[in-house]
Simulated scan of single mutants.
Amino acid sequence: PLGPGWTLLDATFRAGALVFGGGHVVLPLLETGFVPAFVNHETFVAGYGAANAVPGPLFTFATFLGAAQTVTSPLLGALISTLGIFLPGALLMAGALPFWSALSARPAARNALAGLNAGVVGLLLAALYDPVFTSGIRGPGDLALALLAYAALSAGRLPAWAVVLGCALVGWLAL
């Protein structure tokens, strides 16, 4: 068996290699790789919420998970996880870039990408349901707060950090 550093690299590399279309697709892959082997479910969901509150790519959530694990030092875990999540895309780009013009001109390749995009929508819905909905919505009050937060983000155009802080305040007051 490989050591914990290699196991971290494996978990994040697999998630980075299997993503297509957006960072939220990696959520179930990261959950499978990190929970419960490296972090508990509560830490995972809390980190995911925090990652959505700050600007930047969701891939940086892997950096948080690497720092939150307890089998290596936080700095080493964060470095390994960051490298692992971004390395597959960098390798793919380096390998495919010379062929991209010819490949993108083919109708079959464009159709394949359209099919992959449809699959990504399904993965995003699955990631929204589990673990986000199943662990975050425990009753009608939670559902109402989530819908209000969504309305504040989409219709109210409030910044994500303000909505997260507002939801945290409502949750704290409800305790």
Rank of each mutant, 00 (worst) to 15 (best):
P1Q: 12
L2A: 15
P4I: 06
T7N: 09
L9Y: 10
L9W: 08
L9E: 08
A11T: 10
R14M: 08
R14C: 08
A15S: 08
G16C: 05
L18S: 01
G21D: 07
G23W: 05
H24Q: 09
L27V: 15
L29T: 05
L30V: 06
E31S: 04
E31Y: 01
G33S: 08
G33V: 03
G33M: 06
G33R: 09
F38Y: 10
F38W: 04
N40P: 09
E42H: 14
E42T: 15
E42L: 11
T43E: 14
F44C: 04
G47V: 12
G47I: 11
Y48F: 15
A51D: 04
A51Y: 00
P57K: 05
P57V: 09
L58I: 14
F59R: 01
T60V: 14
A62T: 02
T63Y: 00
T63W: 00
A67I: 06
A68D: 12
A68N: 08
V71C: 06
P74K: 09
L76F: 05
G77C: 13
A78L: 03
T82D: 06
G84C: 10
G84D: 09
L87E: 07
G89R: 05
A90C: 06
L91R: 00
L92I: 14
G95V: 02
G95N: 05
L97P: 04
W100P: 00
S101Y: 01
S104E: 13
A105L: 01
A108F: 08
R110L: 14
N111L: 14
L113Q: 00
A114E: 14
A118S: 12
G119F: 14
L123K: 02
L125W: 11
Y129S: 01
Y129W: 14
D130H: 10
P131Y: 06
P131Q: 07
T134M: 00
G136D: 03
G136F: 04
R138Y: 01
G139W: 02
D142I: 13
L145H: 02
L145Y: 01
L148M: 11
A152M: 11
L153D: 13
S154C: 05
A155K: 09
A155F: 09
A155M: 03
L158M: 08
A160H: 10
A162P: 01
V163T: 03
A174P: 04
